[in-house]
Design a protein around this nucleic acid. Structure first.
Length: 599
DNA sequence: ACGCATGTCT
């Protein structure tokens, strides 16, 4: 007894709970024990208290019922302490608590949320052995695990198998989980088809069903489709949107810079008495920061605080990133240092953001310090951290250090992703190691990594910039042969490569091919081509291109504009072109004093 | 008397 009390104290229980526990211990009557455990469970707010209560319960004789243990298990799971919860479940088994379908489903959920769906299926095996027929709750947890691990094909197979073999009747939650998986995999069309199937099967889609798909559409920049579904949900189904639905839509609008629409939607929320919460506000903070409007982001934080919402680590991570983006590293670091005072713990993302800021502002030493600091704090750099640091090394020409970090990343069990691969290829190209990039590319071969147009864009750009326009041409043909679709960037880097080599005819041919390939030239295409013409003193098409730009509502970027000014000043171009050029000066450049005296 | 699904950041 003494030992146990000491143990409880050691774990930092508050005295209030200890007191409750000691009174609980001496109650022997089953009914009073019953209500006592339930009321204790309701008072628990942290993991320590939960673990201590479990400890008490496991030493009580007769043992509390499986229901009480399950309530506690659920509580710990809700706190997202899946590991602890699983540990408690194992202890329950050791104690001989007769675990049932309820506790089993929680155990399986915990396995799955820990990216151990394999173990989840093992527990399913236990269900069969213990003659506990798995139900829709258990299968949902497993399905969710497969989705979490991005094992979408297996998720689909499980889903279909459950229906076909009538292992369980899918409920709305199961449909929603499957829909989430499809959305995660970018398959909005099938997700919506599944929503229609639900209607057919008289399993009415819920607010979660709609919110899941609406969010996915927003993330895929299909805002109009998202609003179509939103309207259907409200008008046809009579389902009222909640703060989650609104947050997805507002987030989508903000990322598109559609501030007016976002603000209308915020107002609509208020009219419906739905308050924006910390996630809604954070979406706004992030969007402002990404547009460089950090002052507005700060104002949003002030408003949320006034309204009683507490900014969390995600909010501040966005703000830190905003400062980094503007190169205001001192402010970024100040916010970082203030987090602990606010009771927040900087996480891997916080460190990675600051590290990224230092890299982008070419302060590689500070970036390395940050990388070191997080490992000292026991934070594990993830694939994003490594990728950021690798990119930083490449940017300052430290290719060997970059290479070493790729190896360390492997050693630490972090698997490089598509983004890491792109960073390495780009880094090699920009450090005159195109051959190395190409070797890596051919080594990777027909893997999924090489089925991304972005990879080709990097290599073609790298080849072009290193005077290997023939290599660029081969790569371009290669991607066509593979059935990949060149995007506007592919055309731009190809055209840029041709121009650099003075192959203006080839550049023009490709430029003309864009429209007919359903990939119309963008602002950058015109600037690239015009720069090519000017640098090669080939002026025949220049005026026509400028007129086309004007028709399309495009404008010249600063470097192209200054090139034009140089050519006019040198008498290579006629001053009569100034009027046309004037129409193509972007508004933001009109206030630039360095460009005021050009006429 | 106990268990499943939706939105914010690098």
């Amino acid at each position: 007894m003494m030992n146990r009390t000491a143990f409880i104290k050691f774990r930092g229980t508050n005295s209030f709970l200890l007191h409750s526990l000691s009174s609980f211990q001496f109650s022997t009557h089953t009914a009073s024990l019953h209500s006592n455990v339930s009321s204790l469970i309701h008072k628990i707010t942290n993991l320590n208290d939960a673990l201590n209560l479990f400890d008490e319960m496991s030493h009580t004789r007769p043992l509390p019922s499986v229901v009480h243990f399950t309530q506690l298990l659920h509580l710990v799971t809700k706190m997202k302490h899946f590991s602890s919860s699983l540990h408690l479940f194992n202890q329950m088994c050791s104690l001989g608590v007769p675990v049932d379908k309820y506790s089993m489903s929680i155990a399986i959920k915990c396995c799955c949320q820990l990216y151990r769906t394999k173990d989840g299926f093992a527990v399913l095996g236990c269900c069969f052995r213990r003659a506990i027929p798995p139900n829709v709750y258990i299968f949902n947890a497993l399905l969710d695990g497969l989705v979490l691990e991005e094992r979408i094909l297996e998720a689909e197979m499980l889903f279909k198998k459950l229906i076909k073999q009538k292992l369980c009747e899918p409920d709305v939650v199961m449909y929603n989980t499957m829909i989430k998986g499809l959305c995660k995999f970018g398959n909005n069309v099938t997700a919506i088809a599944l929503l229609r199937l639900m209607e057919q099967k008289h399993c009415e889609p819920s607010i979660v069903t709609y919110s899941t798909i609406i969010d996915s559409l927003c993330k895929d920049k299909l805002i109009d489709d998202a609003f179509k579904l939103f309207k259907e949900m409200v008008s046809d189904k009579g389902i009222l949107p909640n703060v989650i639905t609104y947050t997805s839509l507002i987030c989508g609008l903000c990322k598109f810079g559609r501030w007016d629409d976002a603000s209308k939607l915020l107002k609509q929320m208020e009219d419906e008495n739905i308050s924006p919460d910390v996630k809604t506000f954070t979406a706004l903070v992030d969007a402002f920061c990404k547009e460089g409007k950090v002052e507005e982001a700060e104002a949003v934080i002030d408003i949320m605080v006034e309204r009683g919402e507490v900014p969390n680590i995600v909010t501040y991570n966005s703000l830190i990133d905003g400062y980094c983006l503007r190169g205001e590293m001192i402010k970024a670091k100040t916010v970082f240092d203030s987090l602990r005072l606010r009771g927040l713990v900087p996480d891997v993302v916080t460190h990675s953001s600051l590290l990224n800021g230092y890299c982008k502002n070419l302060n590689i030493e500070k970036a390395e310090e940050m990388f070191h600091e997080m490992t000292v704090k026991g934070l594990k750099p993830d694939v994003v951290t490594y990728s950021t640091m690798i990119q930083g090394f490449f940017q300052v020409g430290r290719c060997v250090a970059a290479r070493r970090l790729v190896d360390e990343m492997h050693a630490q069990g972090q698997v490089p992703d598509q983004c890491t691969y792109g960073i390495v290829l780009d880094g090699l190209c920009n450090n005159h190691l195109v051959e190395g990039a190409l070797s890596l590319f051919y080594l990777v071969g027909n893997s999924k990594l090489n089925s991304d147009i972005a990879v080709y864009n990097i290599l073609i750009d790298g080849a072009g910039k290193n005077g290997k326009v023939e290599v660029a041409r081969i790569l371009f043909q290669g991607l066509i042969d593979k059935g990949l679709q060149p995007d506007v960037r592919t055309y731009n880097v190809m055209i840029s490569g041709f121009c650099r080599e003075g192959q203006l005819g080839e550049a023009k041919l490709l430029f003309l091919k864009m429209e007919e390939s359903g990939c119309p030239p963008n602002n950058i295409t015109y600037c690239v081509l015009l720069q090519g013409y000017l640098k090669n003193r080939h002026y025949d098409d220049v005026e026509m291109l400028l007129r086309e730009m004007d028709d399309r509502g495009y404008s010249l970027d600063a470097s192209t504009l200054s090139l034009f000014i140089d050519h006019i000043a040198a008498g290579l171009l006629d001053r009569s072109m100034l009027k046309l050029l004037g129409k193509l000066v972007p508004k933001e450049l009109l206030n630039d004093p360095s460009l005021c005296d050009w006429e």
